[in-house]
Design a protein around this nucleic acid. Structure first.
Lengths: 197, 197
DNA sequence: GTCTATATATTGATAGAC
DNA sequence: GTCTATCAATATATAGAC
């Protein structure tokens, strides 16, 4: 789990895993058919750990549903800071590394994302009466995951927390506008692009 | 370039590259010191190709600076559709695959991101008078890159264009709110989180 | 500049004793 | 269930003829 997170799947050799675990190859292959099979188990474990490791710690820090979303993002910020911008999101890393040839792994990655989004959507649903009636909370949850993953990518690429903070800041601004829009007396805004010149 | 894009760096062997190029290893190593050196050349090439391959085609389709931003995003949408959600952004892929051990590559990746953001920022600067005075256009450009990369990741992970469209739709909504805010007569919105209960 | 041939190390995985 | 020993394939890279 650690190696796949820090080095990636392809860049991690079975030999490294064995050495770190202090076991021999016979033991590993007694439990796992292959390296890819081990990856599937790791991804399954991430699914199981989502609430205990990611969601619950954030939700405990705050009660307000909207602030809980930003508390989850703050968790990823802590991870970036702690690892000096080397870590990020293990699922996002694998999502971009693994392609068609690892079909099962990609399915489990998608399931991880779905779980994350569902947690965020619970928050949005709780705050539904503060959001504009037109807000698509499913899409909004997708957007939040996207901003997190993209922000983490930029912070890792630049070795700085600034990109992540910039992205979360813009997301915060978006939410402030959405929450204000709810109480606005003006007409709803058009959702499409303006007419071309 | 193609292999690193489609398969990733670690998953691509030098032997594959040689076969596809129709040359032998002596030729490759005559020009490039190592596989990593070839990667650096590829990343340099991406920097050179940014405007001709990504920005200019989008800018030609439309004149309005804001719409030009969404035209760039539309280009990535086309890429996703054309490759059946397998491709995405070659820089983003490498950004998450390569870690500390490829320091030079990571610098070139960051340079690629900077170039992309500068193109977007040019658009935002052109549209400065339509945006709120308080809008940080540098951060906004970072946000747009982040949404693109995150949206591409989600669409690849789910094998569907829906996530990308959802993210771009939310970004569009954000812009509509920003553009409307510019003309609003109300007080500026607070940028920070609301007080905790 | 490109070729062939090859070096050396490491890859994921297996067999079979214990 | 864990061990040792080892497989066959592949990895990146090099040497030296042409």
């Amino acid at each position: 789990m650690e190696f796949f997170y820090v080095q990636g799947y392809e860049a991690t050799s079975v030999a490294e895993i064995l050495k770190q675990a202090g076991v021999n190859s016979g033991s590993l292959y007694y439990f796992f058919e292959s390296k890819e099979n081990l990856l599937l188990a790791v991804l399954e474990r991430y699914k199981e750990m989502l609430w205990s490791a990611v969601i619950d710690p954030a939700f405990q820090r705050t009660q307000d549903p909207i602030e809980r979303i930003f508390a989850v993002l703050e968790g990823y910020r802590q991870g970036l800071m702690f690892t000096h911008f080397t870590a990020g999101c293990p699922i996002g890393n694998l999502a971009l590394e693994l392609r068609e040839e690892h079909q099962e792994a990609r399915e489990k990655i998608a399931e991880n994302f779905v779980g994350w989004r569902e947690a965020i959507r619970k928050c949005l649903d709780e705050a539904a009466d503060r959001l504009p009636a037109s807000a698509d909370r499913e899409q909004l949850a997708m957007f939040i995951l996207t901003v997190m993953e993209g922000g983490v990518m930029q912070s890792r690429a630049h070795g700085s927390i600034a990109p992540f903070d910039a992205c979360v800041g813009q997301l915060r601004n978006y939410f402030n506008l959405l929450l204000a829009q709810r109480h606005s007396t003006g007409p709803p805004l058009s959702a499409g692009p303006p007419a071309q010149d």
